[in-house]
Nucleic acid binder design. Structure first.
Lengths: 147, 147
DNA sequence: TATTGTTATACTCTATAACTATA
DNA sequence: TATAGTTATAGAGTATAACAATA
């Protein structure tokens, strides 16, 4: 079943990309904002590990998001080396709007499926959530030799 | 349920990205190769639409993959304007290897779940496949104002 | 004139290496 | 000396606009 799941996940990724990026935020920006909105303010290093990107990469992504007003840097951690990144009200608003748009598009797709299929997907959601939670240390930053 | 599904899909995307790109191919390259391997040779325009990127973007992606020997351009379509892109044996091999690596990693994750959860995911696969097939015309190329 | 693809240009995304500041 | 983050630099990824070749 793993191979079938692999292919399904690959294609779901394409689906998400198409649903998610039909707007003003890239996939990376959207996922970072989504995390900050769900989990609250976090350290830059924490974010880099969580999103599976390098620390400089996260510095730059946060920089672009900050420039555009979606996140804010704070330094109130006691450790004065650290940076705490939090989503701004505007960013929170944007995440909500985008999430609703995706939900609407998904809803439309779901409505074209047979009720049994819809139910099967619904019943798998908790399991999928736990599958996601199972991956904690699979964080291998990509090499630069990518095509 | 759409909103829960939205979040799950968002996180599955992160999972796939981390599993998939821990090697020498980017997400874009991997998904294009995967498509060519599954569906056979295709026209450049067809690929651009299918992957949800612009025609010039696809020209460049194919260019990089061709440079590295994973795909090949052909012109045998009758219409001499057209280009047919096909995966090379080396590319096919690479897709297989990568897919197996991801399957292995997924298998490991799955094995940490309760059997009921594994079963629920297994039962949802056909429905998810149909969900993917339902999105045919959701192809909105991204704007350039992305963060 | 319309379609297929490429070239030119610009910006995001991401990496590694080198650096600064704090612990 | 180790850790948190930034800056410098380079290449992939992607878009729009302008172009060339074919239909």
């Amino acid at each position: 079943m793993e191979n079938e799941l692999t292919v399904v996940l690959e294609q779901l990724t394409r689906l998400v990309r198409q649903l998610a990026t039909a707007g003003e935020l890239s996939m990376s920006a959207l996922m970072l904002l989504g995390r900050l909105e769900r989990e609250g303010p976090q350290r830059l290093t924490e974010l880099a590990v969580g999103e599976g990107v390098s620390q400089p990469g996260m510095t730059q992504l946060v920089g672009r998001l900050e420039r555009d007003g979606w996140v804010r840097r704070t330094t109130s951690t006691g450790d004065r080396r650290g940076v705490l990144v939090e989503v701004t009200p505007a960013g929170r608003e944007l995440v909500g709007v985008r999430r609703n748009q995706r939900a609407e598009a998904l809803n439309h797709l779901l409505s074209t499926l047979h009720p049994e299929d819809q139910a099967a997907i619904g019943r798998a959601l908790p399991a999928l959530t736990r599958l996601i939670e199972a991956r904690t240390s699979v964080t291998t930053p990509r090499s630069t030799t990518h095509v």
